[in-house]
């Protein structure tokens, strides 16, 4: 929850997205677990396909072996990138706006003034509920506003949703 947990790489560039003077709140590490579980479930099909291939005599054995090696490499990379991606998220509630940063390959910042928010959604799928995380999603009149904060502990998410909704109501202006 403190600003020290924010990853700091190539500080000068990142400062443009994530001003170091603000109090950036990171996501729950449980989101990493959730995404890795989803990834692994997807990989069950890959593993099944490779195992089946091993037992089909018409396919030379090194085909499934090669595929397996590639699959393991991609799996490892995805595993690692999920951790970095989740840690790259951060949000800060300022006086008049909410800012969200995300992404490592493509770095993004979204700034939404409270007065422009129309709906604040709180969602949590079965896996999320089991792990104890929830997603707060902001909607404005623009469909292109992409401000989602996934992977917050439910109490923190609900409190954030309530604060945002209250501030949105207070400052509601302009469509």
């Amino acid at each position: 929850m403190d600003s020290a947990s924010v990853p700091s790489r190539s500080a000068a560039l990142d400062a443009a997205f994530q001003s170091p003077t603000e109090h950036w709140v990171p996501l729950s590490p449980r989101l990493i677990t959730a995404r890795r579980i989803t990834l692994s479930f997807g990989y069950l099909f890959v593993v099944a396909a490779i195992v089946v291939a091993v037992f089909i005599p018409a396919i030379p054995l090194w085909y499934p072996i090669g595929a397996g090696v590639i699959a393991v490499l991609i799996y490892g990379w995805a595993w690692w990138i999920i951790g970095r991606r989740v840690r790259s998220y951060g949000y800060v509630e300022r006086d008049e706006d909410l800012q969200v940063v995300s992404g490592i390959l493509i770095r993004r910042l979204v700034v939404v003034p409270y007065g422009r928010m129309q709906i604040v959604d709180l969602t949590s799928g079965p896996l999320d509920r089991w792990l104890g995380i929830a997603t707060v999603q902001l909607h404005t009149a623009a469909a292109t506003t992409d401000a989602a904060i996934p992977g917050l502990p439910p109490e923190q998410a609900a409190a954030l949703r309530d604060r945002l909704a209250a501030r949105g109501e207070e400052r509601s202006a302009g469509m």
Binding site: L13, A16, F17, G103, L105, I106, R107, R108, L109, V110, V111, V112, P113, R116, T140, A141, A142, T144, T145, D146, A147, G174
Partner: peptide, 21 residues
């Protein structure tokens, strides 16, 4: 300005190399 709903900034890998956003 009063019709703008939110503002985003993004920077891809290649843009980062060139100092663009």
């Amino acid at each position: 300005h009063d019709r703008v709903q939110s503002v985003g900034m993004s920077e891809g890998l290649w843009q980062r190399r060139l100092g663009l956003a």
